[in-house]
Every structure is written in C-alpha cells, then in structure tokens.
Amino acid sequence: MVGIFSKTIDSNLVEAISYSGLDFMIFDQEHGTVDLTTIQNHVRATKMGGMTSVIRVAENNHNKIGSAFDTGADMVQVPNISSVEQAKQAIEAAKFYPKGNRGVCCYVKAANFGTTEKSTYLTNANTKQLILQVEGKDGMNSIDSILELDGFDILFIGPYDLSQSLGYPGQVDHPEVVKAIEVLAKKVKATGKILGTFVDSFDKIKLFKEKGFRYIAFSVDLNLFAGLCKSIKKEF
C-alpha cells in the first residue's frame, strides 16, 4: 500500500485525493493542527473514492486512540512507542474486550450513530487495524518484546525521529540510520507483521518496496501541492 500524510483542513481536497487511486491517507494530529471534527469529515471524504483512512494520534493516550476510532477511521497510528509497556497500552486503548479495554460507546460515527447492532459493531471494531511507530533507540532495544504482542498489525519505522535518536537529526540516509532501519525491518518481517515507513522521494518508494515494506507513506499533501505549484511556475 502507498499513501500520503495529510495536514489539510479541507475535506474537498481529501475527497479529490481519494479518486487518485492512492491506498490511504494519514490524518496527522502529532504534527498537524486538524481536530477530530474535521477529521471525521475527512474520513467520510476518503470513502468517496474508496481510500483507507488513517489517523495518527498526537500521543499514546487511551482517550485519543479510542476517539480516533470513533470517527469511523479504518486505522489508527500511534507514534513514539518506546517499550513493550507502551505498546500494550496502545493495544488496550484500541481494542474492546476481550482484546483490550477501549471505552465503549455505541452511538458514535463508527457505529453509524447507534443504528448498527451493538454486538456487530463491537465485533467489527476489533478488526480495525492498529499501527505502532518505533522511532528511537529505546524502541529499537524493545523491538523483540513489542513484536511478540498480538493486537497490532503494522510496525511503522519513523526514519526522521530515528535519525535524531541516533545523533544524526534529519540525515535519514546516514549509514548508521540505514543500518538501524535494516535491523528493525529484518525483525519485523520475520514475524509476518506488515512493515511500514515514510519516504519523501520517488526512488525510495521502489527501494523500500523491494526491501519488503508494504505500508509506505509518501510525503505530505500540502507539500506535494506546493511542489506542483513551483513546477508550474518554472514553466514561465
């Protein structure tokens, strides 16, 4: 799957992108300003073109994770997982009993505002996918224990935060950063979990796809739009 991060507050832009054939959009609350009311409209917009909706919450917080799923989003992505305890907390927040302890409300958008039969909603909700981001030394040191857990589907390697944690901020192509990503990728692939990351150049999409990454986020919607505008200007 290939998709993009999103920082827009315009659901029309989200809908337009949904017709592109991209697999997903990640609505970013960690490094974005979009609120849940807007994101709920974004989630509706993705359905117009059959695109998967993902919310990256601001932090590993029980309420934020549950509320993100309440919008009807297909996946939730949790940043900065540094320990097996933090991974367990994210899973607990994302799943209903018996898989977790997510707060129960059967009258949210995800339950069609209460019109979906309650047991059906609760069962189906537990099939929604959870993405955990590992992006630092502590997470690397805990990766074996994290990967032993059930309840999450994708392990996302954050290259920029990882580069900073290793002492090379922003240098995602530094040999030490590349080596760390390869070590993590090998461990993830051995478990059968889906491997994800972020890239910001076209050649890296192909490179990481060849390395077994199946969930690749490419750049950011507003940056892509700005870049296209620059390209138009250069023609004059």
Rank of each mutant, 00 (worst) to 15 (best):
R56S: 05
I216L: 06
Q164W: 00
M1H: 12
I17E: 03
M48D: 04
R214Q: 07
K234R: 13
T191H: 05
G158H: 01
E59W: 06
D200P: 05
K230N: 14
G32S: 00
L166K: 05
L147A: 04
V178S: 03
T52R: 06
K118E: 11
T115W: 08
P175K: 08
D173M: 04
Q29T: 11
N41L: 12
I17R: 08
L195H: 13
A58N: 05
I146E: 02
R102A: 02
V199M: 15
V134D: 01
G21V: 15
H31A: 01
G114L: 07
N60I: 00
K7L: 06
K209N: 09
P169W: 03
T123Q: 15
V220F: 11
A93W: 03
S219C: 11
N126R: 05
Y168G: 07
E117G: 14
S82Q: 02
C105Q: 10
I65Y: 07
I39M: 09
T191P: 05
T116R: 10
D203A: 14
T8A: 07
K206N: 13
D203T: 15
I65S: 08
E148Y: 01
A73E: 09
P175F: 10
F225A: 15
Y215G: 09
D70A: 00
Q164K: 02
I131V: 12
I232T: 01
K204F: 15
C106G: 15
I157Y: 02
G100W: 03
A110G: 10
I39E: 02
V177Q: 00
I154Q: 09
D10G: 00
F198E: 07
T120H: 15
D35H: 08
L122N: 14
F225W: 05
E148T: 04
I146A: 04
L195I: 10
K88N: 11
M51Y: 03
Y160N: 00
V188C: 00
K193R: 13
D35Y: 06
G114Y: 13
S219D: 14
D70F: 03
G114D: 08
L207A: 14
K47P: 05
N41R: 14
A73T: 06
L162Y: 11
F236E: 10
L36G: 04
S163V: 00
F198C: 06
D35R: 04
Y121E: 10
A93I: 04
H174V: 06
E85K: 01
G151N: 02
K7H: 14
M75K: 06
K230Y: 13
Q40V: 08
N60P: 01
L13G: 02
K118Y: 12
K109P: 09
D150Q: 04
I154C: 10
K230Q: 14
F198R: 09
A16H: 11
I205W: 11
N112R: 03
N124P: 09
Y19V: 13
D161G: 10
G136H: 02
K88E: 07
E210M: 13
G139K: 00
F27G: 06
A180L: 11
E148H: 08
Y215Q: 13
I154P: 12
V84E: 10
T116D: 04
L166S: 03
G66C: 12
G227V: 14
